[in-house]
Amino acid sequence: MLIPRKYRSIAVAAVLLIISLTVLSFSAIRLSETGFLRKMVLEAAAPVEDTINISLQNLHDVWKRYLFLVGLDDENRRLRKRNAGLTEQLNRYREGSLEAMRLRKLLELRESFPQRAVAARVIDRNRSSLFKTLLINKGTADGLRVGLAVLSDQGVVGRIIETSWHASRVLLLIDGNSNIDGLIQRSRAQGILQGAGSAGCSLKYISRAEEVLAGDVVISSGLSGVLPKGLLLGVVTGASRKEGGLFQKIDVAPAVDFEKLEEVLALTTDMKPKP
């Protein structure tokens, strides 16, 4: 060997450095054509890079799809929650609207009486077949007392039979214990409207001579002093003279749907101050 062993490393390093510097100097000065070796490297590396990049892209796509699905699930859960919230909100608005409509009717009714009327909310209803009563959220503290008439926008509900300071029990028109003076609007025949439980009411003490037709409207006569005259009690559903005796058997359907009652108006005997 021409170069001593001791200096071989230095010689190799020097040669390599010179070669690389020369190459660098040439390429820095001007753009040269791609040489054969460089072409070979590019040709060899391109398919490998392509394969790796495609694989990475696929992996990336799978990951993105996974993330998208995770996001979709989150979004779905969020939208479901929002939907439930909005449905609940809509329901509350609808309820509010319906309540406002009912209260408006009640207010109109209240305005039509000279007496002071107290609006109350139905807080419980007796579901037993024997007693037909309901509980309202106003009592003696609001001026209510036993015997007062209770109305709704549909007609007469009944009368108060029990009161505490902040609650009252109302005996419904259809309870067997309820008796209200009534008259048939068309014929002006007077009788007593008695509750008949689930069957509704029956109008008693109407002479057989009176002509009573189905569909006749029964209103309060105002004789007992509890109810003002002219309040709607119900509608005649049928009249029969078959049974012996002086009077007819008249079935009356109450005007009020007691199952759907939510707000009522209790009439006190005090007169409203004149505006």
Binding site: S20, V23, L24, S27, R38, L42, A45
Partner: peptide, 17 residues
């Protein structure tokens, strides 16, 4: 240099250095 460098020979020089 072939695959990434903008200046051919730069990495060759650097790596040898």
């Amino acid at each position: 240099d072939c695959l990434t460098s903008a200046i051919f020979g730069l990495y060759t020089f650097l790596y040898i250095l």
